[in-house]
Design a protein around this nucleic acid. Structure first.
Lengths: 220, 220
DNA sequence: CATCCGGATATTGTATCCAATCCATGCCCC
DNA sequence: GGGGCATGGATTGGATACAATATCCGGATG
């Protein structure tokens, strides 16, 4: 779980809108570079523009959307250079997080990781891209959540969000899913053995492959 | 300068409000933990609540304020553990940025750093805390801006923002200002010599001292 | 033929009003 | 006297109406 306490309260309109926006961006329903038409989108979501705008402001603060005053909000777009930068920063932060987390993982954590790997394989089997994206995230965040550094986790999450749309794109191809699936099994083995150097080595290869694949997507 | 192009257009109300909020948080005018009363604050700023709320949403996305639905916004508060975490992440990111930037610094950059150091000393001389805070930031960001990694710079800026209020507090004491002033001179010398190990060593010491001082402030 | 200048139109930005929720106070009941 | 509950006031959340700004297009002008 990602440090969100379960709100027993009915969600506010703006919470709903924010979740919906995130989903739309991740799935590529709202495409990178696309302008967000407030009135049309608000109507489609069944609210007024006010909650929509406030949700957009959060995403602006997180860098998920670009804002041009008096012109509007645009889904953030990644250049190749941006992509390389995102992964470079991710490596810095995730290495630290994993190194700190590895000795702290409990048996329950390992079991949860095992479950996540199986979820990935199931999603792969039925070619359910969104489920695959979710399970993939879930695996990697389980790995680092236990370190108890909420800000670090938050930053890493922001970086993931920035590339999720592209990740969804390459999950479409079965051979990419197959590779991701295999790599997670290997990472899990290294983690279970508490072998930090090996874990990092595998994670780095995992990331490098992701950069390659996304680069291909970016180059059409 | 932190990559903000000069907007030739009259600022919108919400841009003004956002800048004002940031300033108030940095200077401690709005104190950590304090609830932000929207109506009163909006009136004081001469706008309606709408631009204020949108500005608050950005700060929420950046983690500068905490939001509790139906209860309000509160200026973010740092525990000792948070403080240590922030500096730990900063070190990761800034080391990378400085290492990448050091070989790229131009003579103009070095001159600008020189100017920043002098601005720090002037601010110290007349005990102008906000100016000192600004000059301090300016020095450190000049050091990393030239690396041309906008996302990295952005993340580092967020981390700085999180602790600016506390930094302002310890700048009140002359001996702290004196130490900061001296350390910047030393860092500048190492940077000018393009001596990366020495630069990092000095920066680490600089950060460690900051953690110590802020910890004292936190412990009242 | 290219360029510059309005003005119409679409879209965003802000103010105001009302509804929903929370919190404190005081009452009643146990 | 203490704890639960209703009620009033304060505060936030959301909808609507209006103002400000940008964009697009047609026409005048060099």
């Amino acid at each position: 779980m990602t440090a969100t306490e379960p709100p027993r309260r009915p969600p506010t309109a703006q919470e709903f809108v924010l979740a919906e926006l995130r989903r739309s961006i991740v799935t590529g329903e709202l495409r990178p570079g696309e302008q967000i038409r407030q009135e049309a989108l608000a109507e489609r979501l069944g609210t007024s523009r006010v909650p929509l705008r406030e949700a957009l402001k959060i995403l602006e603060g997180e860098g998920q959307v670009a804002y041009h005053p008096h012109r509007g909000y645009f889904v953030a777009e990644l250049s190749s250079a941006d992509l390389v930068e995102v992964y470079r920063i991710r490596r810095l932060l995730e290495d630290e997080a994993v190194a700190a987390a590895l000795p702290l993982l409990t048996d329950e954590d390992l079991a949860a990781l095992q479950d996540a790997v199986e979820a990935i394989e199931q999603a792969d089997a039925i070619a359910d891209i969104p489920a695959m994206t979710r399970a993939n995230r879930s695996f990697h965040f389980l790995l680092i959540d236990s370190v108890g550094m909420p800000r670090l986790t938050r930053l890493i999450r922001q970086l993931w969000d920035a590339t999720d749309a592209y990740r969804s794109m390459y999950f479409v191809e079965p051979e990419n899913r197959e590779q991701v699936r295999r790599e997670h099994r290997e990472i899990l083995a290294a983690v279970t053995a508490r072998d930090l150097p090996r874990t990092l080595e595998l994670l780095h290869a995992h990331q490098d492959h992701a950069v390659e694949r996304v680069s291909r997507v970016l180059g059409h």
